[in-house]
Nucleic acid binder design. Structure first.
Lengths: 351, 351
DNA sequence: AATGGCGTTTAAACCGGTTTAAACGGAGGA
DNA sequence: TCCTCCGTTTAAACCGGTTTAAACGCCATT
């Protein structure tokens, strides 16, 4: 509780000048070894830690990174990605004495968040998540002079390195899995198509099906929320020839869809197979357990933080970082399609 | 991208000294009105914003508040409370030019998070959530000289104001609701008893039942996770005289419990009524919709941030803030108990 | 005209570090 | 012996604000 020691205290104790202490602390050459020893000893006898504020002012760095998240439930609320991602980021920052500054902004105005972070010089760099097509934030950050990394690759040109976890293999694996079970009428509930990752997932869905010589029953636009998942599911089930399997772009929609199917009197997976994406905590515990795709958001956070730090340090020409793709997790919500369905031509008697 | 203007630039432009600019900006008395006008005009002609870093150094404030969260999934992951709470906090901070610093720490070591925040002088105060009995963090913060507010009231003495949202009325309402439906064999799946709010909920449960002249069938210890919810539910269903209704201390356990009950072949609510706590997003959309209790974590965040700011400003004797209690949300997962159950004595023929 | 008082303004110190240019001191060479 | 060079150390400026004590200008008293 007594005032903390300053660099002057350390200098006095070690019998040197402030400058020398600074040199010793930062391991700069030009100081005699013995002097360095003496200074460091004095420093930790006093338990001295250099003041972040003073350092911040003189070197013009914040020693902090920023994350802007919209208050939009489609992105933030109970999204299993961010908590784990943030934990990963923190695990890196805490080793560097850096802090994570969070900005939560109203639905449409993410730009404000970055503006504030830049205007107040609160951070040295930011994470750019939930990329949209032709995302205006990229130009904004360039203009603001704020270093960044993008989570996954943007569609256009970007001066920032990307940390990418390819969603395609996960979707491909889910569709393959359904095909192997014998499904031929598969539908997809996508996320909002303005998001790059949402579009990537639905494209992968369609392409995998096409490659197998099949047409998707439908691709319904969802919004990543449970409510949207319900709506989309109801529309699919109301089709004259409803699907026997539905692939959702995330677990929230899938779990809601599961509820909607059950409310409609269907048994999952006997009447309908359902698959999600994310492997959120509840996926394992709903009934039936949800087949889904598991990524590693913690490691995503680690990689993103490390990469962003390289950008902040002025490292140029940083290659994009590729993370291992998500894995299929098979649970009880997917099974073979019902043997007989209304629309199918009656089985031909064997010749 | 050109260097931002400093207070010296403004002073020069207005033809006054740095000191005067500082006075004008902070609305200090002693400056002639005309001078203030002149200075403010010069300031926004240049688009000057005082540097947070410089201010930070000279006034010894961080202009930031801190939140420490454990990486423990029981607290963080997909907990609907924090995202909304944080959004509420941010809505206050953004108006004051303050930032929110997040510390995510490993399971047991929350203390480290506060230590780091204090050592690095990153924040002016912190939010103390998920209080435990005899919580060591209170003494720690006193020792560190870090102002704080507690979310809900701690069990012992505390020098910090509390922002409280009483969980009791919510639990009481749930139990009343079940009693009105005719249930007499009700069980509870609690959170870890070392948490004050978990214990508050289970105490409220027991007391309400006792007041109605009933005994709880059982109070199982859960851990707020879905996995724990499953386990506890299985134990309850395996009792020789299983409950006809289960009240869970949070939605995650309740939704998992719902899955466990269905997996065990029970129909909810016909065979078993289930109620949660939190009204998380999925609660409305699982099948059947989950009866639960809804609080307002956003407003909780607003109140907590405002109160913490008063503490930080040196305001002493701040009264605790009471928030409106959570409301019961009735959905399909609760209904009258089955008319006949194994253990009941056969109905007496009318005399 | 000198003095006092008051409202206004400023110069300078300060916060706690980093950084640069200059000073210092001892060894080696002429 | 003197000069130079080089490794080591320091003094001082600087980052961009805030704050305090002193100075200033002006008017009212005496």
């Amino acid at each position: 509780m007594t005032k903390r020691p300053t660099i002057a205290d350390v200098a006095r104790r070690a019998g040197v000048s402030k400058g020398s202490v600074s040199f010793a602390l930062n391991g700069r050459p030009g100081l005699a070894g013995a002097t360095v020893e003496k200074i460091l000893a004095a420093a930790d006898e006093l338990g001295w830690r250099p003041s972040n504020r003073a350092r911040s002012l003189s070197v013009s760095k914040a020693f902090a990174l920023g994350l802007v998240i919209t208050r939009d439930p489609a992105v933030l609320s109970s999204d299993p990605f961010f908590p784990a991602f943030i934990a990963g980021v923190e695990s890196v920052l805490s080793m560097h004495g850096q802090a994570l500054v969070l900005q939560v902004v109203a639905d449409g105005s993410e730009a404000d968040g970055y503006q504030r972070l830049a205007r107040d010089a609160r951070v040295d760099g930011v994470f750019l998540s939930d990329l949209r097509y032709d995302d205006p934030r990229i130009d904004l950050l360039v203009e603001l002079g704020l270093p960044a990394v993008t989570l996954n690759r943007p569609d256009g040109e970007s001066p920032f390195p990307a940390v990418v976890l390819d969603d395609r293999p996960g979707i491909v694996a889910v569709v393959q899995h359904l095909l192997e079970l014998g499904h031929t009428r598969i539908a997809h509930v996508a996320g909002p198509s303005e998001f790059v990752h949402a579009a990537t997932r639905s494209t992968a869905f369609v392409e995998t099906l096409t490659a197998a010589g099949l047409q998707p029953v439908a691709v319904e636009a969802g919004d990543f929320t449970a409510a949207g998942g319900i709506e989309a599911t109801r529309r699919l089930l109301a089709l004259p020839e409803p699907p026997t399997a539905i692939v959702y772009a995330n677990d929230r929609m899938a779990i809601a869809g599961l509820g909607a199917a059950q409310a409609a009197g269907l048994t999952v997976p006997d009447d309908l197979s359902i698959a999600g994406f994310d492997d959120s905590e509840l996926a394992e515990y709903v009934h039936p357990g949800l087949t889904t795709v598991r990524a590693d958001p913690f490691h995503f956070g680690v990689a993103a933080a490390q990469t962003l730090n390289r950008v902040v340090d002025g490292d140029t020409e940083i290659p994009d970082v590729e993370l291992p793709p998500a894995q299929l997790v098979r649970r009880r919500s997917t099974a073979a399609p019902p043997v007989q369905t209304r629309w199918q031509p009656p089985a031909q008697p064997p010749v």
